[in-house]
């Protein structure tokens, strides 16, 4: 099963809708509640990153009997130093974004905490792809 959703740039009335949609879909498919929540959190963080930093992009979700794969792609400025971006508290978000309750520098670390596997490919001035993998049959605290 495949699903492709677009994530608009700086549209905060829309940001988070793709994740909410995926969360509802996965719950309807009977996937365990804790796993659904982990997927929703990780995807929402990615969605906000694309809306805030990435200039908009797409979320492609692929569901197989064993895995949920989520590819979050944007054509934004890219991440020059992924190691630094993975540091809790590090953020390049503007004051405006912080006033909305985001930009705390918890996004990528939170995605890592919630996903079973996380892969980031980023090229400066070309964009970023974040690949989140969730195992359907493996228990995680």
């Amino acid at each position: 099963m495949k699903l492709s959703l677009s994530i608009p740039w700086m549209d905060f009335s829309a940001a988070g809708k793709a994740s909410a949609e995926v969360k509802k879909l996965l719950a309807r498919l009977g996937i365990e509640q804790g796993l659904v929540k982990r997927i929703a959190i990780a995807m929402y963080e990615g969605e906000m990153n694309i809306a805030i930093h990435g200039g908009g992009g797409t979320a492609d979700i692929e569901l197989t009997p064993d895995l949920v794969d989520i590819y979050l792609r944007d054509h934004g400025p890219g991440i020059p130093d992924i190691g630094l971006a993975m540091t809790e508290g590090y953020s390049t978000a503007s004051e405006e974004i912080r006033n909305m309750g985001f930009g705390a520098g918890m996004g990528l670390p939170n995605m890592k905490r919630n996903a079973d596997e996380l892969y980031i490919e980023s090229v400066v001035n070309q964009g970023t792809t974040v690949h989140l993998v969730f195992h359907l049959n493996r228990k995680q605290e």
Binding site: F12, E45, F102, G105, G107
Partner: peptide
């Protein structure tokens, strides 16, 4: 900070906040 809410909340809580927006 909604980022913190997402990073730290685990169980069924009531959220107290001074932030008011759809997010």
């Amino acid at each position: 900070l909604m980022s913190d809410v997402m990073a730290f909340v685990k169980e069924s809580v009531v959220l107290l906040t001074g932030l008011m927006n759809p997010q």
